Amino acid sequence: MTEPASKSVLFLSYIASQKTGLYRLVTEELIDRLPALGWRTMGASGKQNRLLRMLDVLLTIWRLRREYQVAHVDVFSGLAFIQAELSVGLLRLLGKPVVLTLRGGNLPAFSQGHPRRVRRLLNAADQVAAPSDYLRDALRPFRSDMVMIPNGVALQSYHFHLREKPAPKILWLRAMHAIYNPTLAVEVIARLRRRYPDIHLWMVGPDKGEGTLENVKTAIAAAKLEQHIEIIGGVPKAQVPAWMDKADILINTTNIDNTPVSLIEAMASGLCLVTTNVGGIPALLHDGVDGLLVPPADAEAMANAAVRLIEEPGFGAALSRQAYVYAQRCDWSVVLRQWDDLLLRVARGASGGGGSER
């Protein structure tokens, strides 16, 4: 059998931008950036249909088995967890070293409902990484030696400017899906319009097609906010910094989350952040230091936080400055080296399953 190239890795996840041209997952960035450190990278799958994607992933594992030294698998909850289980099972049969990365803020809840499956999967890997202390700590009972590597951002792609006097120019940046609760953003603007007649909100993010976009449009019309809220839709990743430049405040209305890259990108841009305190977000932001945290589904609390940023002298600027300090730790120049070290260590030293069943 032909030996795979030194420093070669197969990434198994949803390669979304292949089809949409829009947002890129962290895994896609790794596929493009690791070759600069001598890695040959491969990836699957860009199939949008879940069943076809799963089949494509498994076929790719087999078809390219002589070409990669180590495999990396993203782990999501729900039906996507099955894809990770099948992928790792086939990789183990092939004798391939495996790195897992925990993705998705719902994994802690999923693990409580399926503890044996989660334990079995995590301990079948040679190493497990998490993008936040939140996910690592939540799943520590299933495997204790997980490592934390933050989501990376290209700091030079974002135009940092200090928001010394934040204006009521607000950005919402997520997918149009119920878990991100975009209708809360409409409620917030409805409350703030009374105080700031010139307020404006840009809602940037692709429609997931499950009815949320229609609900948002209905809420805008009911509140007569058509002159104050623009629904932009999905945009290419390269255009995100320009939309961030337009605003002074970012509101994140999600009900479930891990450590969203959009928040780190906003920090790199100097935006003042107001976000719900769900999932791993409290581990990312320190309330009153580099962002403001509010309870989920609380329009009044989120509106009050925005008022504080706009009207309290020096407060918005202090948060903007501290947020940028944190973002510097997540620059790809730092994060990529951590991935290089981890993958190289596993590729050279793994012997087929690093965890112990507990």
Rank of each mutant, 00 (worst) to 15 (best):
A175P: 01
S77K: 07
L58W: 09
E226V: 08
S13G: 05
S17D: 02
L25V: 11
G113P: 07
E265V: 08
R119M: 09
Q338C: 04
V73M: 07
L250G: 08
P35G: 00
M54T: 13
G280D: 03
R191P: 01
R195M: 00
L162E: 15
S351T: 14
T212F: 10
D137G: 10
L213D: 09
Q239P: 02
Y23R: 11
V274E: 05
A124I: 00
G152F: 14
G104E: 08
G209D: 12
D32C: 15
V153S: 02
R163D: 05
R92N: 05
A350L: 05
H159Q: 15
E164P: 04
W62T: 11
I179K: 07
G205I: 12
R50L: 12
G291V: 00
A16P: 01
R65T: 12
L37E: 14
S13W: 15
G279Q: 06
K237D: 14
I15D: 11
H200F: 10
Q48N: 08
L121V: 14
P236R: 03
D207V: 02
T218M: 13
V278L: 10
T27Q: 11
D331L: 12
G280K: 00
P260T: 08
A323H: 03
F110W: 15
S320K: 02
I310A: 09
L225S: 06
A124R: 11
L342H: 04
D287L: 01
A297S: 10
I189E: 00
I199F: 07
C272V: 07
L58Q: 08
H72W: 05
A327M: 07
P141K: 14
G270P: 10
L184D: 03
A242K: 10
I220N: 03
A323Y: 03
L51K: 06
T41C: 13
A221K: 15
R194M: 06
F76C: 01
E357I: 13
L58S: 10
L100T: 07
Q112N: 05
A303W: 01
S111E: 10
Y324F: 15
S13H: 15
N151W: 05
R116E: 11
P115A: 12
G352C: 07
E28Y: 12
D74A: 11
Q83K: 13
F76E: 08
I31Y: 11
I220M: 08
R50N: 05
V99W: 08
S157Q: 15
R140W: 03
I281R: 02
S269A: 15
D137V: 12
L171G: 15
P313W: 09
V147N: 03
A124Y: 08
G353I: 04
R120K: 12
A219D: 00
R345T: 10
Y324A: 04
V147R: 13
V294E: 02
P168W: 10
R24P: 00
I149Q: 01
N49P: 04
V334N: 14
G288T: 07
W243L: 12
L79I: 08
L107E: 04
D257T: 07
L192P: 10
A268W: 10
V98S: 06
V70H: 06
K208H: 13
T60M: 06
A283S: 12
A299L: 04
I220R: 13
L343T: 08
K7R: 13
L52K: 13
L139V: 06
T60Y: 01
T60L: 00
S45K: 14
S262C: 12
V294T: 15
S320L: 11
L86Q: 00
Q227P: 02
